[in-house]
Computed example of a mutant assay.
Amino acid sequence: MGHLPDGVSGPHTVTVLGAAGVVGSGVVHELAKTGAVQRIVASDPRTDLARAHLIDIAESARVVGSEVDTEFVLATPGELGPCELTVVAASVPEVPTGDRADFLAANWELLSGLVPVLERCCAEGGVVLLLTNPVDVMAECLRRATSLPPERILGYSLNDSARLSMAVARELGVPASRVSAWVLGEHGAGQVPLYGGVLVDGEPAELTPEARERVDADVRGWFARWSALSPGRSSGWATPSGVAVMVTAMREGGVLPVSVFTGCEGAGHYGLAESFVTLPAVLGAGGVSHVERWSVREDERSALAGAAEHVRRAADRLLPG
């Protein structure tokens, strides 16, 4: 079956909810391609489409002569049992011209219906990785609505930092592979780019105020540019690739920008309200090991506090009382 050595920590079995969608099937493919796990359990109401994806993904491994031999299982929600990691890729379609509040409410209705499944999947210390947007609000609502320890709830937000790195690269006229840049805060309007931490070739790179404004406009205009293309899908390659990176970090360690509970170990350094926002987190087999205590500027700290409060209020509206 799988090829991970005995004794290796981190998820060996991953369940993917919403496995028939673009993102969910992409997660299955990326985890299988990279050999990140031994066993992938796929679940989706569109059973035939999910089954077709599994057949295609398994055959793709044979086409390229992969030595990875991942086990694939197709299961209904009622058949799902405990596993180390459950990836939630289920979502209602986001309409660019639609009401954001309606989108939030519809996705929480979808996610809240999965609560019994998630609690069953995580019954033996499993971790939940949410891809459902708005991810910070969904994670905070899930924390309130379940008995799951908050350090075992993760929200995906790696794409924000990738987009900042690419925008900085365009501004400086260098290849994106040479740039490292981080975004903390809330996925969406509450992003907090850490310009003081931008690196080019591993060395600090100072951007002028005018350059920062252009980079900000570039990053914050991403969704409008994407929507103008009318692709009819979300980021079906970047997000699955990021999920594989997170799974590797759960096994090997390393700091990543992840939406985590502000009550996790080390997060108190930032002085934030109880909520979920992206912070520099060290992952382990049990979810968040701890949050790194980074030095941030006062304006960045204030922006982080505003993002956490915004997420908290949005969750309050969805779960009054």
Rank of each mutant, 00 (worst) to 15 (best):
R214G: 08
G197E: 15
A249V: 01
L118V: 09
V245E: 14
G185F: 01
P149A: 15
A305G: 12
G21V: 08
V95D: 15
L74A: 05
R251W: 01
I55E: 14
V288R: 08
L114E: 02
E300H: 13
W237T: 12
R46L: 13
G287Q: 00
A169N: 04
I153T: 04
A285T: 11
P175V: 06
V258M: 06
G286S: 07
G2K: 00
P240G: 04
T97F: 10
M250H: 03
V27D: 00
G190H: 06
S180V: 13
S302W: 13
D99N: 12
L272C: 09
G263M: 05
V117R: 04
P193G: 02
W182E: 13
L319F: 05
P209N: 11
P149E: 14
R170H: 06
D102C: 06
Q191A: 13
G126A: 03
G113Y: 00
G242Q: 03
G268I: 05
G78P: 01
V63Q: 11
G24Q: 03
V27N: 00
G196Q: 04
V291D: 12
S25T: 03
G286H: 01
P204S: 07
Y195T: 08
V183R: 03
A285H: 11
E119S: 01
T146Y: 07
P11G: 00
P96A: 03
E265S: 14
V192A: 02
S165K: 12
P93M: 01
R297Y: 09
S112Y: 06
G2C: 04
Y195Q: 08
R212N: 10
P240E: 00
V219P: 06
V68R: 13
T34F: 08
V183N: 05
A285W: 08
E203A: 15
V296K: 12
E71S: 11
E203R: 15
G21S: 10
A145S: 15
E186H: 14
V179N: 03
V92W: 05
V135L: 08
R313T: 12
S147H: 09
S157V: 13
T239V: 15
R39A: 05
R225T: 08
T76R: 09
D160E: 12
G190K: 06
V92I: 07
R251K: 00
A249M: 03
A19D: 05
Y270D: 00
D218T: 03
V37M: 05
V260G: 07
S9F: 00
F261P: 07
F261K: 00
A217Y: 04
L130E: 11
S66L: 02
L85Q: 00
V260L: 07
L104D: 09
M166Q: 14
L142C: 01
L318W: 05
A315C: 04
S161F: 07
S275R: 08
P209S: 10
G155T: 10
A305C: 06
A169E: 00
G306E: 08
G236T: 06
G271L: 01
P150V: 07
D102H: 10
L49V: 14
S157D: 12
V37D: 02
D56A: 13
A169M: 01
S43C: 15
L154G: 03
W294Q: 07
H269D: 07
L283V: 05
R163V: 13
T70N: 08
L129N: 00
C121Q: 12
C122D: 07
R317A: 15
R212M: 15
P5S: 12
V87R: 02
G197R: 15
L4K: 02
F223K: 13
V115T: 14
